[in-house]
Write a protein that binds this DNA or RNA. Sequence first.
DNA 1: GTACATTATTTGTGTATACAAATATTAGTA
DNA 2: TACTAATATTTGTATACACAAATAATGTAC
Lengths: 149, 149
Amino acid sequence: MRIEDEIQQKDFKDDHRRMVVNLLFTNNWLNQQFIPFFKQFGLTLQQHNVLSIVRGQQPKPVCFGEVQERMVDRNSNVTRLVDKLIEKGYVTRDICQANRRMIELRLTPKGTELLSQIDEQMPTFFHRFHNLTQEEAVLVSKLLDKLRG
Amino acid sequence: MRIEDEIQQKDFKDDHRRMVVNLLFTNNWLNQQFIPFFKQFGLTLQQHNVLSIVRGQQPKPVCFGEVQERMVDRNSNVTRLVDKLIEKGYVTRDICQANRRMIELRLTPKGTELLSQIDEQMPTFFHRFHNLTQEEAVLVSKLLDKLRG
DNA sequence: GTACATTATTTGTGTATACAAATATTAGTA
DNA sequence: TACTAATATTTGTATACACAAATAATGTAC
């Protein structure tokens, strides 16, 4: 459905404005897809992002700063996200002995297990994004990279 | 900058996953552009969206349901957004006499004035999105429309 | 080794989001 | 007219975001 019809706005000032509104709108649509998906597993999008980052560095532990740098949403508050993940038993937090300002984050077996469960569901979940061909998906990524400069 | 470098993730499972992450990341980047821009005027992105919608229907008043349908971010709570706008004196809220469940929203002269001020700054602000040509901007919109189906 | 800057994380605060439930008004129906 | 359903908005609540300030540990210069 065209963005003009989605938000019932007949005419945009120019094509760049239409594109920006479309990006914002599409992001909300994306969130509406992701929120219930991760909710099944008791996670938010950002919590899952943190878990994935910790897993990605295994077997090395990860500190908060590294997590922040790699997060898709940089504005998330890593301390409070991790608090939730510890409560749920998916990660552990230890003070780094080499530099006691730093925190070492590690995935627990329970966290590893949860991520595998989610991985299993991912291919099915991602079917909904296959309205675009592989070539088009590559093109969108290229254009977004170019947009941000 | 390529999304792989932005979030330091070497390899995505496939092109659709890279695209989705890129969309989420780009949306955060977009927000970081818009938040300070609207903050100059004491508004949030959603508050500005509401004001624009009310102006778009002038001289007819607008009810909350219409605003919700036309908002780029449908999850916003119109009641509470409008509370803020009334506090600041940019809109008025009246009970519709024909159907007293409904609310009539109208822009005040102060609201009209604020929107004009913002309009003046818009072209300059949007320069930062001209890394893409007009053709590319059109293409992105088309692809996003197709993605959502 | 003391003072000051730097780095890493935490906390505080106001605002916003997500979602469910509540309230109020109108419409439809027996 | 009373009962029920539908519509429009509001409220409640837990969580999350944006941003500034605070805390804590380390590094560096003198």
